[in-house]
Design a protein around this nucleic acid. Structure first.
Length: 271
DNA sequence: GTTATTTGACCGGG
DNA sequence: CCCGGTCAAATAAC
């Protein structure tokens, strides 16, 4: 994930996919580690997984913002960090705020939309027209304290895929400092726009549920159209997965037991 | 008691 | 006028 300075935008795509895959696997591995009995090695493993996640996320962000990855968002994926001034000046009524097309949007398809190292607070949920599941709106928990403008929306896609996939849209960058303080190493090499993920201050802790981890755990895409499905009954379920924060365990069984063995094997070597 | 989530209303853009 | 993003009162959870 470095030395890509000279890569062509198209060449980066493959890199993005690889990194995305690695990130996803690491997310799952992290979930496995969380289920292990507490212990110094378990903790170490979690710390390592955390750092790897952060690095892959950072690398992906860099690639994306360079305009190669998931630049979709209607066409303004450049970099800016600008947004509507959100005329909050007004008052008297609610539901104000103007949303504009000129937001910086990063779309990501992931199976673990709630794990990205940041803490989010849900502030709304909306049934979207031709979508099977409602869209949930989150803003950074540090919005009040630090004025962090970061936001994201999460929407489950398709039907009941085994590991359900979610379209996560990030808008605005985090300005909150909390995480950086704890994991200063993360941002090391990110270029102009890395910043999407500094550390996760509490990832290793027990609050995993409140963190929505890892935007990039799956695939960075430029999908712009949601499915055409038009049911609506199961909508409520869509955002209920909040409850089980991490990810469906079955996916672990399927593809990552081997990886886990490998990982644990390495630790054995250390013992 | 405080804090987070849910939910329907409100609003602006298209 | 419809749709999606946001607010904030009500409710739930801690």
């Amino acid at each position: 994930m470095e030395g890509n300075a000279a890569l062509s935008p198209c060449g980066d795509r493959a890199a993005i996919q690889d990194i995305s895959r690695a990130h996803e696997l690491m997310s799952q591995l992290q979930a496995v580690l969380l289920q292990l009995p507490a212990g110094s090695w378990s903790q170490l493993g979690q710390d390592m997984a955390k750092q790897i996640l952060q690095l892959t996320t950072s690398a992906l962000s860099t690639l994306q913002f360079c305009g190669c990855g998931a630049s979709d968002d209607g066409g303004n994926s450049k970099c800016s960090g600008e947004l509507n001034k959100s005329s909050e000046g007004r008052d008297g009524h609610r539901g104000r705020k103007t949303r504009r097309k000129n937001r910086t949007l990063t779309k990501v398809t992931t199976t673990v939309p709630y794990v990205d190292g940041y803490q989010w607070r849900k502030y709304g949920q909306k049934t979207i027209n031709n979508a099977m599941f409602p869209r949930c709106y989150y803003k950074c928990s540090y919005r009040e304290g630090q004025g962090c403008p970061a936001k994201k929306t999460v929407q489950q896609q398709g039907s009941y895929a085994d590991p359900p996939s979610f379209m996560v849209e990030y808008s605005m960058k985090h300005t909150c400092k909390t995480t950086e303080t704890i994991f200063p190493l993360v941002m090391v090499e990110s270029s102009p726009h890395k910043a999407s993920l500094h550390g996760g201050d509490s990832i290793g802790s027990s609050d995993l549920q409140d963190l929505h981890l890892s935007p990039l755990s799956s695939a960075v895409t430029h999908s712009e159209s949601h499915d055409k499905c038009s049911s609506s009954n199961e909508q409520e379920q869509a955002c209920q997965h909040e409850g089980f924060s991490l990810m469906p365990v079955n996916t672990l069984d399927e593809l990552d037991m081997g990886l886990m063995d490998m990982f644990m094997g390495n630790f054995d070597g250390c013992f």
